[in-house]
Amino acid sequence: MIELDGVGRSFTVGRRRTRKTVHAVQDLSFTVRAGEFVGYLGPNGAGKSTTIKMITGILAPTSGRLRVAGLDPTRRRTSLARRIGVVFGQRTTLWWDLPLRDSFELVRHLYKVDQIDFRRRLSELTELLDLADFLATPVRQLSLGQRMRGDLTAALLHDPAVLVLDEPTIGLDVVSKAAMRDFLRRLNAERGTTVLLTTHDLGDIEKLCRRVMLIDHGSLAFDGTLDDLRATAPEEDSIEDVVARLYTGWSPALPAEG
């Protein structure tokens, strides 16, 4: 579902004489198969967000080959949008002053979802994510947990094959976080949706992901199972200890990327 082969992304920063090239991602290669639930970890500035933006077609790679659902994300961005769903934990895709239900209706038009399919899908997601009590509430009045459930619903209304999640549980209370994790687990298990998850919350990784990739300084530092990752450190270490060891100076308690 997701294929990166030698992908790189560089930026030129500074002015005239002080210009320099920053390699945000370098020679990055990995494959995510259909139905996988993969965690994508790394410290701030490691290249996670740049990778996500290339996968979703927001940024074009400066080198290498990238395919998502068989499509070039940059050249086929509109076609790809119908195959993927994206949730950014720190940014909403909903309309701030509209009731949640009206935001969903606009999403239906954007993705050209058939009315019958839309009603069926919304009914299913409303039940699974417990949205009924605030469908008529303006988005700006929703709690963070309610808004995140709304954003997740909006990302799934067109029934995407791939779901990309960037910090989907950031700031959520314990109850909301547990509900979100349970839903994502069921979505992957029952519908076979391919999920790529970036997060600083290692609890998300332990409860949801069978495979973990770690990126640092734009390059892949680890790709394997959680058990493989734990095997890189003493048995008494927690998963937080293991990851922290791999990234000098990085603590999982740091805030998410801005």
Score class of each variant (00 low, 15 high):
residue 128 L to D: 11
residue 128 L to Q: 13
residue 32 V to P: 01
residue 209 C to D: 01
residue 210 R to C: 05
residue 182 D to L: 13
residue 217 H to Y: 03
residue 172 L to N: 04
residue 37 F to S: 00
residue 251 S to P: 02
residue 157 L to C: 02
residue 147 R to H: 07
residue 126 T to M: 05
residue 126 T to D: 08
residue 146 Q to K: 09
residue 160 P to Y: 03
residue 6 G to E: 06
residue 127 E to G: 14
residue 203 G to N: 05
residue 84 I to N: 00
residue 130 D to T: 14
residue 210 R to T: 13
residue 171 G to K: 04
residue 118 F to I: 02
residue 122 L to T: 02
residue 116 I to K: 14
residue 252 P to E: 10
residue 118 F to L: 03
residue 163 L to R: 00
residue 226 L to Q: 13
residue 150 G to R: 00
residue 213 M to F: 09
residue 153 T to G: 02
residue 143 S to L: 09
residue 23 H to C: 09
residue 224 G to T: 05
residue 251 S to D: 14
residue 8 G to Q: 12
residue 132 A to K: 13
residue 122 L to P: 01
residue 104 F to M: 02
residue 149 R to W: 12
residue 135 L to S: 07
residue 76 R to H: 15
residue 200 H to W: 12
residue 10 S to V: 11
residue 200 H to S: 08
residue 218 G to R: 02
residue 218 G to H: 03
residue 33 R to H: 13
residue 89 G to A: 07
residue 186 R to Q: 12
residue 161 A to N: 03
residue 135 L to R: 07
residue 99 P to Y: 14
residue 167 E to C: 05
residue 175 V to S: 08
residue 124 E to G: 06
residue 148 M to Y: 03
residue 77 R to F: 06
residue 63 S to W: 09
residue 25 V to F: 06
residue 172 L to E: 07
residue 68 V to L: 09
residue 63 S to Q: 15
residue 79 S to D: 15
residue 7 V to H: 02
residue 54 M to E: 10
residue 91 R to H: 14
residue 124 E to F: 12
residue 257 E to S: 12
residue 147 R to D: 12
residue 216 D to T: 02
residue 240 E to F: 04
residue 149 R to G: 03
residue 218 G to S: 07
residue 234 P to Q: 11
residue 103 S to I: 05
residue 219 S to E: 14
residue 37 F to Q: 01
residue 62 T to H: 06
residue 181 R to E: 06
residue 148 M to P: 08
residue 173 D to K: 02
residue 151 D to N: 12
residue 207 K to I: 11
residue 239 I to W: 05
residue 188 N to C: 11
residue 186 R to W: 13
residue 9 R to C: 09
residue 197 L to P: 00
residue 72 D to N: 15
residue 40 Y to V: 06
residue 204 D to Y: 03
residue 179 A to L: 12
residue 200 H to Q: 12
residue 214 L to N: 06
residue 96 W to I: 04
residue 62 T to S: 12
residue 65 R to C: 05
residue 192 G to M: 08
residue 228 D to A: 14
residue 155 A to R: 00
residue 227 D to I: 07
residue 70 G to I: 05
residue 103 S to N: 08
residue 50 T to W: 04
residue 115 Q to I: 11
residue 21 T to M: 04
residue 133 D to L: 15
residue 123 S to P: 00
residue 133 D to S: 15
residue 135 L to M: 13
residue 144 L to E: 07
residue 51 T to L: 07
residue 206 E to T: 10
residue 144 L to R: 10
residue 155 A to T: 00
residue 125 L to F: 04
residue 219 S to M: 13
residue 111 Y to E: 05
residue 238 S to R: 03
residue 251 S to A: 13
residue 74 T to R: 11
